[in-house]
């Protein structure tokens, strides 16, 4: 489940876990620029996940006729 990004060990979920941890740390200490940086990275990562899922769904429908053979 966690190795979706191109088959490499580093995946959206590894990043999500790290970002979640960073968010937890930022609840008690931080800096506005670091907070904005983290939010941007988390948003980029989430966008990549959503885009990948969109492409999967589209390609699945385009290729589904092959599964009927």
């Amino acid at each position: 489940m966690f190795n979706f990004n191109g088959g490499s060990g580093i995946s959206g979920i590894s990043t999500a876990a790290l970002s979640g941890y960073a968010g937890y740390m930022l609840l008690s200490a931080g800096n506005i620029w670091i907070s904005i940086g983290f939010l941007t990275l988390t948003a980029v990562s989430a966008c990549l996940v959503v885009c990948t899922l969109c492409r999967y769904v589209i390609n699945y429908h385009r290729n589904s006729y092959l599964l009927l053979d």
Binding site: G12, I13, A16, A17, S19, G20, A22, G23, Y24, L26, L27, S28, A29, G30, N31, I32, I34, S35, I36, F38, L39, T42, A43, S45, A46, V49
Partner: peptide
């Protein structure tokens, strides 16, 4: 630095959603 709980909650929320 000072904490920014609102931004932190957004980060945690987005991560959990992902």
């Amino acid at each position: 630095g000072a904490a920014h709980p609102q931004l932190a909650r957004w980060i945690i929320g987005l991560s959990l959603l992902q």
